[in-house]
């Protein structure tokens, strides 16, 4: 019960902090809109309409969830280091991963705002008909995708805890995930060797579930794959954090790395 409370309170607190930050709040909304606008204009120039436009709108909207998470997640521990609170978090009796997960979940939640904003942008500025065949499955798939992306951000944050310039790695991972997770580009179009990498990424399955819900197809298999990967990221994150923090404590480099 106390764990659930910790996750919820931290998530809510971090969400409030982020919504007041120009980088996470304002840019978190605007940045995906820049890309979505470009993509909508590209599709309009190609003369696409109907399901192709809807598919592009849904894909572009989910891009924002990952955008809000990738750079911010990799930067979050550096931010704690700058504020002098990283050592306190590490020294706290609560397991370190449990403190970081709600932080990255709050980032993905900001991304969900941007998803809604992108869909509204597509509807009212570009006139794209947002006809979701199964709204309940769509919302459920979105929630699972937010958690899946939050967990991927958690793994990213934990893995880069010792790197001062981790934000650049997170920023560099933003577009590759857009590229290979089927947000806009079908996996079949990409080289064969890319597909196994995509299958190991939760956003691939989350995106597939959201698209399936929008088109009225079944979502269960995709959702289960997304959840399984999110759990796997959690376990890997715990192991990595133990290794990284032990190493940092042993060398006394937590604040310096």
């Amino acid at each position: 019960m106390s764990t659930l409370r910790l996750v919820l309170v931290t998530w809510w607190l971090q969400l409030k902090i982020r919504s007041r930050s120009a980088f996470d709040g304002l840019l978190g909304l605007l940045w995906p809109l820049f890309f979505a606008t470009t993509i909508f204009l590209m599709y309009r120039a190609s003369g696409a309409e109907g399901s192709a436009l809807l598919s592009a709108a849904v894909g572009a909207s989910v891009m924002g969830i990952w955008s809000a998470t990738s750079t911010s997640a990799s930067f979050t521990l550096q931010q704690e280091r700058r504020q002098g609170t990283l050592e306190l978090l590490v020294a706290a009796p609560t397991p370190f991963p449990l403190l970081i997960f709600p932080v990255t979940l709050s980032m993905a939640t900001v991304g969900a705002y941007s998803m809604i904003a992108t869909l509204l942008w597509g509807r009212f500025v570009f006139g794209i008909e947002i006809a979701v065949a199964n709204p309940l499955a769509f919302v459920l798939s979105t929630l699972v995708t937010v958690v899946g992306i939050g967990m991927l951000g958690f793994l990213l944050a934990i893995s880069t805890v010792r790197y001062r310039s981790a934000w650049a790695i997170g920023a560099a991972l933003e577009i590759p995930v857009w590229l290979i997770c089927g947000f806009l580009i079908p996996l079949q179009v990409l080289p064969v060797w890319v597909r196994p990498i995509a299958w190991l990424l939760a956003p691939t399955w989350g995106m597939s579930a959201i698209r399936a819900a929008a088109e009225g197809r079944g979502v269960l298999a995709d959702l289960l794959a997304c959840i399984a990967l999110a759990i796997a990221y959690g376990f890997i994150g715990m192991l990595v954090s133990r290794h990284m923090l032990n190493s940092a404590r042993r060398r006394a480099t937590l604040a310096l790395s």
Binding site: I39, A48, L184, I185, V189
Partner: peptide
């Protein structure tokens, strides 16, 4: 790469 592939998918450029 991203926009080249989006362009191929959308059939533009």
């Amino acid at each position: 790469l991203f926009f080249a592939y989006v362009g191929r998918t959308a059939g533009v450029g």
